[in-house]
Write a protein that binds this DNA or RNA. Structure first.
Lengths: 161, 161
DNA sequence: ATTGAAAACCTCGAAGA
DNA sequence: TCTTCGAGGTTTTCAAT
């Protein structure tokens, strides 16, 4: 995780492709960028080593895996300094896919996928509420996800912005 | 997007690998699953056609791209039936990576990446607040993301849960 | 940092059980 | 749905620039 690497215009162009399709052949990217496949390979490797690329993932529709319910959970802590144990406990819960420290009413905001409302209820009451350090939660069920996409990577080779 | 496909234990095992590494060679998955590479290829293709696999993506750290600020924005609408135009407007904003219809105080919950607080401010005041149909917003800045991972895919070949 | 070349490896359609 | 097969494409490394 050395934070020294500087993403240049070619890196950015490479990422703009790989963010949209992680399996795009390096040789195809090479042709688009006008450099060799070996150069793409080395740049990607460097970005992986620098932690700029944190991995890759097939995007699977949660519903196909039996996760019909997506929910956000605002979490209040008994005291803020209890967070390390809380995070460790949350990491053990497969339902939790994101956890953020946020400003405002709640200390943490979780994103979760559950099989159904019963599963969500069970997780909230029997798991989350039993984690020492958590005082109160509020649950926002996602009825529909209208937008889902990777972080925007501008392809700087297009000179117009 | 035919919703008829049933994900079986082998599909699930395939997905459990590809969710963690989208570039894992099909032949390697084949060896793990004990079937041929062509069979993996056929199954992945079917899952893509069925919409179960919705693509793939390199996971890029937003900070490396100059997005230092992650924020969640709760959005209240003037009236709920105005949502189609609002969604279209939000889709045009590169900062918005997720948009959910949620239960509770807000109609929509957005996840956004901005360059800095100034950029966030600009987006909130000059773009979001100007979208017809949006009445009020509340912003929760993510100070740190403690957990980030794909949806849980149980590898059913491990018979123990 | 980039290159070309070479060997190993992978993809993916076809055809058959 | 699985298999084998194979042509063509891709990955990965390396010495040289």
């Amino acid at each position: 995780m050395s934070e020294k690497y500087k993403v240049d215009a070619i890196d950015q162009k490479i990422l703009s492709y790989l963010v949209k399709n992680a399996r795009m052949p390096f040789l195809e990217i090479a042709r688009e960028c006008g450099i060799s496949g070996a150069a793409i390979h080395q740049r990607v490797k460097k970005m992986e080593e620098a932690g700029i690329i944190a991995g890759s993932s097939m995007v699977v529709k949660p519903k196909a895996l039996g996760f019909d319910v997506c929910a956000f959970v605002g979490v209040q802590l008994v005291s803020t300094n209890q967070y390390p144990g809380v995070i460790e406990a949350l990491k053990l819960m497969p339902e939790v896919v994101e956890c953020h420290f946020i400003t405002g009413e709640y200390a943490l905001l979780l994103k979760m996928f559950c099989r159904d409302n019963e599963h969500l209820m069970d997780v909230l009451v029997n798991t989350i509420q039993n984690i020492p350090g958590i005082s109160r939660t509020e649950t926002f069920i996602s009825l529909d996800q209208a937008i889902e996409r990777p972080v925007y990577v501008k392809d700087k080779s297009v000179v117009s912005g």
